[in-house]
Write a protein that binds this DNA or RNA. Sequence first.
RNA 1: GAUUCCGUAGCUCAGCUGGUAGAGCAAUACACUUUUAAUGUAUGGGCCCUGGGUUCGAAUCCCAGCGGGAUCACCA
Length: 565
Amino acid sequence: MSHELSEQEIQRRQTLEQIRNAGIDPYPAALYPVTAYSTAIKNNFEEGKEVCLAGRLMSQRIMGKASFAEIQDAEGRIQVYFNRDEICPGEDKMLYNDLFKKWLDLGDFIGIKGTVFKTQVGEVSVHVKEFSLLSKSLKPLPLPKTDAEGKIHDAFTDPELRYRQRYVDLVVNPQVKDIFTKRTKLFNAMRQFFNDAGYMEVETPVLQAIPGGASARPFITHHNALDIPLYMRIANELYLKRLIVGGFDGVYEFSKNFRNEGMDRTHNPEFTAMEIYVSYKDYNWMMDFTERLLENCATAVNGTTEATFGAHNINFKAPYKRVTMRQSIIDFTGFDIDGKSEDELRAAALGMGIQVDETMGKGKLIDEIFGEKCEGNYIQPTFITDYPKEMSPLCKTHRDNPELTERFELMVCGKEVANAYSELNDPIDQRERFEEQLRLQEKGDDEAMFIDQDFLRALEYGMPPTSGLGIGMDRLIMYLTNNPSIQEVLFFPQMRPEKVVKVVLNENEQQLFDIVQKEQSMELAALKEKVTMSNKQWDTSIKTLTKNGLLKVMKTNDVLFVALV
RNA sequence: GAUUCCGUAGCUCAGCUGGUAGAGCAAUACACUUUUAAUGUAUGGGCCCUGGGUUCGAAUCCCAGCGGGAUCACCA
């Protein structure tokens, strides 16, 4: 990336030279023997304890021969105290007067050896005996400041910059680090819960020849050696079920899924789902399992089952309410979907002011009614059960009602967090459901599922009764950390690529470009005659210009021409 | 995709109905031996997102583009 350096960046490069000239390596190779962290020092105060710590220099308060500074390490910040005559006992005051006062910049990594003490105002600090530069920072950090009332000034808040330069966000905004610490705690707690239950973590393909297990538009890529298209997975469901067929009792996977759809504050093109499949269980068992799981995870992340999300207080304490989809629609619209035909459902939906069209089947219509009128009302964790068959092609038919499936979704704050089935294991039924999906596709539903023949073959060998559960991990962590947007819980959310920086031409390239610009187009040989540069210079210059799309070289009747693009 | 708001110094932002660029912090220099948004004095720092238009004159008004936010729509 080539662009003009700011005044401060030039200054920092100059100090870098001064440091080198003074015989100090600004990027030393040796390890630094850290023995202490900022918060540990503050929490277990021991007067006079010798410590060695390292981190970024985040503030400097210089008062002549004494100074205070703040060091930020992985845990937080601590104040350190510098005294000139202790750091430089002899005549040479360079370390303090030059290195510390002039050459260090905010953001530099330094190492400190010293003793713990309390200042007159009672702040736990480290009295520096020795310090060294560990790594020089060449770009100034944005520096928010907190005043006496705890108000933050000059906060680094622009979402674009925060997401594009998450490393800066993390350095400067400590609450951002917390979110990601909690995210990892959630994953660890969930893993622990599954492992304790005796289930096995597995890995299944990300590149799939048939993107199955969900209905969504996939990303397409190409395998050169096989010369076939491959798809980034939209779900891992069908592979985990193959493993159940293979004889595992319980398998789970944290799966990065990819969907080529819109992006907004709850959708990112790549996101993380957790799927778990357990044999010889049904969806009733899975509801019990899910509520215990989430109670456990919420406690592991926040120390309590309660969580705040915007205006809502949610409690993940088990058990959760269970409502059938039929009952839910009765509750919020007074309409009973039981036994109704497609036309009756369409008319009812229209009557509720819901937009419908001819491609919508029964399942889709019910889904629309539920989504429009009911979903948003479930703030506390609630299981919605028994979905219509049409919208659940991988789910077992309900034991009491052939129109329905044994499926539940867990709603929290009006949004789906988890989705689970008694898995369909009847291979003939499964084949028919896939064919039904094909018919929907022909009707114009561009999200209907593809048919995976190998998956059907696996089912034909026999899959034990199984229940499966999928959890949207990003959405769950949003609830547990009170963040309304998915970008806040992903380290690097998808962004449009940054604008290409303008090409900066050097003298030779500029000279070439100017000549061609005047002529518009000319023979390559003639152009080379006109300029005075070595063959090598000529070669690299012309290559830079063509590579950046400024000039092009064409061959007409065996004569090379150079022209403007 | 629709609506709406925003883009000015390294950071956060002001800049009125058009008159030629401002503050605080950060930076630089000097002073200062327990401060904590340290302080005091002085100094430097800008393609006002890009390109057009209106005008004697545009950061400001108009149009287009680029980038971003928010809301909505789409989305198992």
